[in-house]
Design a protein around this nucleic acid. Structure first.
Lengths: 341, 341
DNA sequence: CTGTTAGCGCTTTCAG
DNA sequence: CTGAAAGCGCTAACAG
């Protein structure tokens, strides 16, 4: 790629330019910039001054290529606009920044194809590690093998995949669900329905198990017809709540997440069904919307920010070579009782 | 960086490996992969097969360095967890992906320092363009000059900076505010307060002007003591609403955004003040939370997704060399009346 | 249609 | 303490 000399090119100041000006070699500039011990204080200062003068900004692309490390963590999540994920990302970013890493986020939009593309893109971008919460459409995990094969740290959070052995951080969904449902039973509700999430996702299976066991352990029958499978969005709660027959209402509903629970409350109220008098509703997440709905939602607190932090910490453990075996961490949840139950 | 031959290195398949295997040159592989016209169909197929066999993933770092283009757009926003920003990002991503670009997002967290760091980081990452919504703490715009100096497309959206000439996409905040307040006046409210955003932000100034003019054009006085400056978060609405004296309540409040409006409604209700009977409340954005609060919030629709799309479109116009002059686009808003007024 | 070759900007060994 | 030089993986102008 010979460039006709004399032609104006995009003027980007490089270490070579600075080297010429200071009459030293590139290496010296490079080392000075990295505060390498073998460079004299005077030289370092001169380089820093010059860099400041030209507002030099290192070319991260070039240095990544040379270093074979980008100092970035890739993150794939289903959707940004969910408090849980936004908060988890904040947690990841916080600890990444503290270690001098950047993070690059991709949304799968709950689409398997997008998730595959995102994984490839991030691999091509040569991220140093990948943190992911799988889409609800994902069952084939082949696209993650790329990372495992190359020994690139791969950490799953919240939505764990089946059929792939890897590091992960999640919450005790079983126990969380168990506690909400137990609370419902103790409040005297007898006919408790569950609006479950997509049951191909382990987390949803676990919440369902928690629901089932809590019923049975408390002397209530498990009735399959009271389990409705839906999605994670408000609109799924709305749809499902609309299907409920007024003549045959449950007296409480445990929804897989707060967004769904909110959809349920809104729809019930619209249909003239009083919450919690006629039907009580509980969710999962402790999304800020839980305190916006009327009545405020009983739910279980999922430590989103902490999960993000934890995921990033696992990454750094892997990078540092500690923890060779997959680490699988599970955080506890806690119940918040509000007026919806 | 000589590497002792024979030592196991991280096994990353490159075009060179494939070139050797097919007994052709790197260039041929490179061209075949890019579907270059000067490569025979047979050769192309052979290369594709081999690439598939090894699950070859191009090294984007290397190609960026060579191409002097990363095919990525950088985005800086104050905060992810706001419907408006999340939706705008979705709009940006959609159009970016359609053009084969990726996007990398940074949150400033409303901190000036973080914003500066983000700008530098994205510059170092050599993004091909930058789309930003400035933090509320930002008044110095020096960090954006980097991009302007190098002729890297720089597009501001929603929160426009003062003192820097650049492309932008925003909404007609003046008109939006005007319409809400006019609606309030027509509903018969007389003492209309405004919970304004940080007034160093132009968008907030514009909404304030709209408020003021709508009052005066409709024969109501502008009373400075009815303007409260607060932030953009729910908690700011809560704080400010708590300061209101019960003996001296306005009969309507126009909040700078829905999050604040929600804080106001919640607080008013908690204090036993009925909404909208005693005090009406209106917001701005049409965030989904507007339909969760009780009563549902009157607000003005800001086309968040479209703004993101538009911002990206401006970027591509710049890249294509069309549009040399700064393009400044302003979108219209529309009013949605709900039960809170 | 294909190969040779000179880079992209930075890092790092090795040899002073 | 400093410089020369090779190399990271890919691209593209130029010459067959």
């Amino acid at each position: 790629m010979k460039r006709p000399s004399g032609t104006a090119t995009k003027t980007e100041i490089t270490i070579l330019d600075m080297a010429k000006e200071l009459q030293v070699s590139k290496s010296t500039i490079s080392r000075a910039l990295q505060d390498h011990h073998s460079i004299g204080a005077a030289m370092k200062q001169a380089v820093r001054d010059l860099a400041a003068k030209y507002n030099y900004q290192p070319n991260a692309i070039a240095s990544s290529l040379s270093n074979r490390s980008t100092k970035t963590i890739g993150v794939i999540i289903p959707i940004l606009y969910h408090y849980f994920f936004a908060a988890a990302i904040a947690g990841i970013e916080e600890t990444a920044y503290a270690h001098g890493y950047k993070v690059i986020i991709c949304q799968s939009g709950e689409s398997y194809e997008r998730e595959v593309i995102a994984a490839r893109t991030l691999f091509s971008a040569r991220v140093d590690g990948l943190i992911v919460s799988v889409s609800r459409k994902t069952s084939d995990m082949e696209h993650f093998k790329l990372f495992q094969d190359k020994n690139i740290p791969l950490i799953f959070f919240d939505r764990l995949p089946v059929g792939i052995e890897s590091d992960s951080i999640s919450v005790d969904d079983y126990q969380g669900a168990y506690k909400v449902v137990e609370h419902l039973v103790k409040r005297g509700y007898k006919k408790i329905a569950h609006f479950a999430g997509p049951l191909n996702i382990t987390l949803c299976q676990n919440r369902l198990r928690g629901y089932k066991d809590a019923l049975q352990d408390n002397g209530l029958p498990f009735d399959e017809s009271l389990v409705y499978e839906c999605g994670f969005e408000r609109r799924h709660g709305v749809q499902t709540a609309k299907q409920l027959q007024k003549s045959n209402l449950p007296d409480a509903i445990f929804a897989v997440c707060d967004a769904v629970a909110v959809g349920v409350i809104l729809t019930l109220k619209e249909r003239g069904i009083s919450v919690p008098k006629t039907v009580a509703v509980a969710g999962f997440n402790d999304d800020p919307i839980a305190t916006i709905v009327d009545p405020p939602l009983t739910t279980t607190v999922q430590p989103a920010f902490a999960m993000g932090e934890e995921a990033a910490k696992i990454f750094f453990k892997k990078v540092d070579g500690k923890a060779k075996k997959p680490v699988k961490k599970i955080l506890k949840t806690s119940l918040v009782v509000r007026k919806s139950t």
